[in-house]
Design a protein around this nucleic acid. Sequence first.
DNA 1: CCAGACGTTGTT
DNA 2: GTCTGG
DNA 3: CCAGACGTTGTT
DNA 4: GTCTGG
Length: 275
Amino acid sequence: MCGRATIITPAADLEKRFNAAFIKGAVLNENVNISAGNKIPVITNEQPNHIQMFTLGYTPKWAHKQTYMINARSEGDLNPENNPQYKGAMGIFNKPMFKHAVKSQRCLVLVDAFIEGPKQEKLNKPYLVYPNRDRGPFALAGIYDTWQHPLTGELHHTVAILTSAANRITQRIEHHRAPVILSREDEEKWLNPDMSVAELSRMMEPFDSKGFNAYPISSKIKSPDANGLELLKPTGDKLFKDYDRCLYERLKYAEEDDYVIREERLVEGDQFVLF
DNA sequence: CCAGACGTTGTT
DNA sequence: GTCTGG
DNA sequence: CCAGACGTTGTT
DNA sequence: GTCTGG
């Protein structure tokens, strides 16, 4: 079970990074342990200049009950072996539950990190996956829909995070899937309603592990109620050796000084793999 | 045609 | 809403 | 979030 | 009452 994410970057910095303003009434709550049912910041193709807070856990508009789908397989029924080398058509376009949304209701899901555990131990042995070199928040590929409660009429804006086969990082964590992380260049394309299926399929391939790292954290994260920066404290070595400060250190540092997202650095040679 | 499902990760 | 299975 | 389970023996 | 799965 993945389904946990972290958002801790202040609203003003998120707005600057993604060139969008929080929509009227939206409140960003710092949340180190976002789980099903919690609010998470998104930018939709319908309102690309605004950041909104949606409920993590997708429900298609036609559902009778809320379904809380946290993830959506980008390959659909294809690639049942979860082969990381899989290229080609993404079967999600054929899935009744997601086909409409993936064609016309795509969004960026804004996070600072996500949490993944091994297939076996799950969140009993969690790792925090984050961008190194202080690159700051990034965008997961999401799809969304609005579901209306049949009795109260209340509207629920819900979102699912797309998944792909594992990449280098999640393989090392012994997990066989990974969230779809969009490159900076693809963020705008993902929101472009005119993108071809082929181009969208390419964007859903496992993310480039270059520029990301991970380290183990406390299994206290398992409880959806647990929260706070201390949950992100490393409990062991990083997956890949590097000379950066880890996310926890970066955030601790931010508490003291003014929070600054450093300029994007060269991605080339980001990760020092020594062994 | 119509009723019923529509999904994930993870497990067996 | 749209596809599948009977 | 909420519906549904909530176990055993035997195996590793 | 509390944990798990979807």
